[in-house]
């Protein structure tokens, strides 16, 4: 009974939003529609996906099935438990998460491929009719397999990324024409350095590292390079390394100075002195007067 109501509800919302968005077009390339997850969805992964969803998606889409998405946005983000969202293939969802379309952000550089699949696995829990297609096995993959290596050239002061690909003969050769992106790790996420670059004949790209970017105390920064692949035809994993090439940054805490606003133990010395001395002086005079006045009891004879 409840389910039927829910379905009806979903249909109405879906129809209404279709009406509103009929003008909006967001075409997913055909070769992407059929893309499938490389692993089977499991309750564990769905849980992981929920975590990522609540951190990254909930601010616009709301929680699936709760219809608490943000109505003011255009095009409307919609509830992802709705048929409109759920009738899309995994590949379509994956493509949309990856590329984004304003105001929806692209998550290509924010979520790893696995993380994007986890989110989809979570979303599919709201579709009881969903049956996961067979995961794409390694053998099925027809694209390039690319391996990245990152080094820092201290003479040229550049970050070098070297891409090799696996040939049919199972040998590694320099890979030309591969888009590479470089990131530096920051507290809340990875920050892209410069624009994506494409490897040359030697499979090499050189990135400038900003001379004024802060590192840790020793100037260490953690760099991440990865392949910039919108088509999904390249298999590669990001490479992370740490170099001491940032500006050594060891700024003191903001509460080092003695100031009006400091805590009591860091009060400006002159205030402590002025206050304490005045109190001691005035009160010792008061106390001595009280004592001497009480003392007049014994002085009642001339």
């Amino acid at each position: 009974m409840r389910f039927r109501n829910l379905l009806l509800f979903i249909f109405i919302i879906c129809w209404a939003s279709l009406m509103r968005t009929s003008a909006q077009q967001w075409v997913v390339p055909d070769d992407q529609k059929g893309k499938v997850a490389p692993f089977m969805f499991s309750p564990d992964l769905q849980k992981q996906g929920e975590g990522i969803y609540t951190k990254n998606c909930v601010s616009c889409h709301g929680m699936p099935g709760k219809d608490n998405w943000v109505k003011q946005l255009s095009p409307p983000p919609g509830d992802l438990a709705m048929v409109k969202a759920q009738k899309q293939s995994d590949g379509e969802l994956f493509y949309r998460i990856t590329t984004g379309k304003a105001p929806m952000p692209e998550f290509r550089n924010i979520l790893s491929e696995d993380e994007r699949w986890w989110v989809i696995s979570f979303l599919r829990t709201f579709n009881p009719k969903y049956v996961q297609p067979n995961p794409a096995g390694k053998g099925v993959f027809t694209g390039k397999v690319v391996k990245l290596q990152m080094t820092y050239d201290s003479v040229q002061k550049k970050v070098k990324v070297f891409a090799t690909e696996l040939t049919k003969e199972r040998t590694m050769v320099a890979s030309e024409g591969i888009g590479i992106m470089l990131f530096v790790k920051r507290y809340f996420g990875n920050m892209q350095l410069g624009d994506p670059k494409t490897t040359g004949k030697q499979g090499l790209v050189l990135f400038d590292f900003p001379t004024d970017l802060p590192g840790d105390k020793e100037g260490k920064v953690e760099l991440i390079c990865r392949v910039n692949d919108a088509s999904g035809s390249i298999s590669s994993s990001p490479v992370t390394s740490t170099y001491a090439i940032g500006v050594p940054t060891n700024k003191p805490g903001l509460t080092e100075t003695r100031a009006w606003w400091s805590t009591r133990d860091k009060a400006p010395v002159w205030i402590i002195l002025a206050y304490t001395i005045s109190v001691i002086v005035v009160w010792s005079i008061i106390i001595s007067i009280v004592i001497s006045v009480i003392g007049i009891r014994k002085l009642n004879r001339t």
Partner: peptide
């Protein structure tokens, strides 16, 4: 009353105290 009997010693203490207190 603090055994006050208008003795010069008592008056001296009281007057001095009042004066000091007035100044503070």
């Amino acid at each position: 009353s603090l055994n006050y009997a208008d003795t010069p010693e008592q008056n001296r203490i009281i007057h001095r105290s009042i004066r000091t207190l007035s100044i503070i």
